[in-house]
Write a protein that binds this DNA or RNA. Structure first.
Length: 392
DNA sequence: TAGCAACTAAACAGGG
DNA sequence: TCCCTGTTTAGTTGCT
């Protein structure tokens, strides 16, 4: 009935890399059907982000020669991101942001309508406990973060609960309805796939859930555009109203007045971009082995703003109700049912010359990081210029 | 005001 | 029987 595209993907924060998947059932990247044996950081899908230490420092220990293709990005990680924290409680008091205050919330009613006891959901300026504030993320994003944080990129529901509870203590005191919402999201959101636990793995009820790689590009695209409203307000030139084509915050220089927190947002976002850039080259239905980085043609990056917010816009089998968000839920579930059997999903995203798009992503990410470090590259400048021209 | 997206609640079924 | 998991439906809320 409902469709939950991960469109409300706020900035990725709270990615404390020290949190390895405690799940005994975490077993490698999701494939079509059962999970391969790929494990944690040694997995070909484990990217540099997985090697970021708790302080944000990047460990070079896992850098393989083949990673040299991404040397420049690793440099960014090492030199620019060491001071950024993904879920660094020391600097940010946890992965939470004060959605009750200046940061606002992606949605008016937040993640829990239960007006939870512990949340001082008062007016801006009232006493706020960030650790007890409603997370400014949709459940889709929470799930996404949880799954992405796991070395195997897959988690059982229970571990998703655990991750959310661990990173968002708000839920520890919230009514248990949020768990229902999590399950509901997993079931309905097409971005999440259910995979069967591999044989011989730790038993347990339920399946593992992972992020559908096909949706990662769109997720990333959404990430770029779904910044905090207030942050976007910082970044959006007054002359032009916020739009889907508005550049992400990181395309603006620091002088334009977004705070370090927003820098962290974009750092995290950029990290996700960088991280995903290597992952999204996978055709999940044709390739279960290591990533072929040369297969950039598989990357799908939509430039259609509508597609950023509605995965049902993906050309699926025509349906008179397909245009409505609620209808696609059934489709998604049917599709997932098919995926579980290893069959290709009926979804076939339109691929329009995606290779430059990936480069764009990488350039933007790199430019973002450089900007965060106060480095203005000609690349970034030219891109900003072109962006501004595009908006005109 | 309509459409949409996201959230909540609830019911239900299946399995451990 | 209880709990967990997963699915489905219905309703609400806020935004555009």
């Amino acid at each position: 009935m409902h469709e939950y595209p991960p469109s409300l993907m706020g900035p990725i924060i709270g990615m404390s890399p020290d949190k390895k998947a405690e799940s005994p059932g975490s077993q490698g990247m999701c494939g079509a059907g059962t999970l391969p044996e790929a494990e944690s950081a040694s997995s070909p899908l484990a990217t540099s982000l997985d090697r970021i230490g708790p302080s944000g420092a990047v460990s070079r220990s896992g850098l393989e020669p083949e990673d040299e293709e991404l040397t420049n990005l690793n440099w960014l990680h090492e030199n620019l991101l060491q001071n950024f924290t993904l879920g660094d409680a020391q600097s940010c008091s946890g992965p939470l942001f004060d959605i009750e205050g200046s940061m606002g919330s992606p949605r008016g009613h937040g993640l829990s309508s239960s007006s939870s006891s512990s949340v001082s959901s008062g007016s801006p300026g009232s006493e706020r406990d960030p650790l007890k504030s409603k997370p400014p993320f949709s459940f889709s994003l929470l799930i996404y973060m949880a799954i992405e944080q796991s070395p195997s990129k897959s988690l059982p529901v229970k571990d998703i609960y655990g991750w959310i509870l661990e990173h968002f203590p708000y839920f520890s005191s919230a009514p248990t309805g949020w768990k229902n919402s999590v399950r509901h999201n997993l079931s309905l959101n097409k971005c999440f796939r259910k995979v069967e636990r591999g044989l011989g793995k730790a038993n347990g009820k339920g399946s593992l859930w992972c992020v559908h790689p096909e949706f990662r590009p769109t997720l990333m695209q959404a990430l770029k555009k779904q910044h905090f409203p207030s942050a976007q307000a910082f970044c959006t030139p007054p002359a032009s109203p916020p739009s889907a084509s508005s550049p992400p915050c990181h395309l603006f220089s620091l002088e334009q007045g977004y705070s370090l927190k927003e820098c962290d947002f974009d750092a995290a976002t950029a990290m996700m971009l960088l991280k995903s850039a290597s992952e999204q080259n996978i055709d999940p239905y044709e390739q279960e082995g290591p990533i072929d980085l040369s297969r950039r043609d598989l990357v799908v990056v939509s430039r259609d703003p509508k597609q950023d917010h509605n995965y049902s816009s993906v050309p699926v089998s025509p349906s008179p109700r397909q245009t409505t968000g609620s209808s696609a839920a059934t489709h998604g579930q049917q599709e997932r049912a098919g995926w579980a059997n290893g069959s290709h999903p009926p979804l076939k995203r339109v691929r329009h010359d995606p290779k430059p798009e990936l480069d764009e992503e990488l350039k933007e990410a790199a430019g973002s990081l450089l900007h965060l470090a106060g480095i203005c590259t000609s690349l970034g400048a030219s891109r900003r210029k072109s962006r501004k021209l595009d908006r005109k």
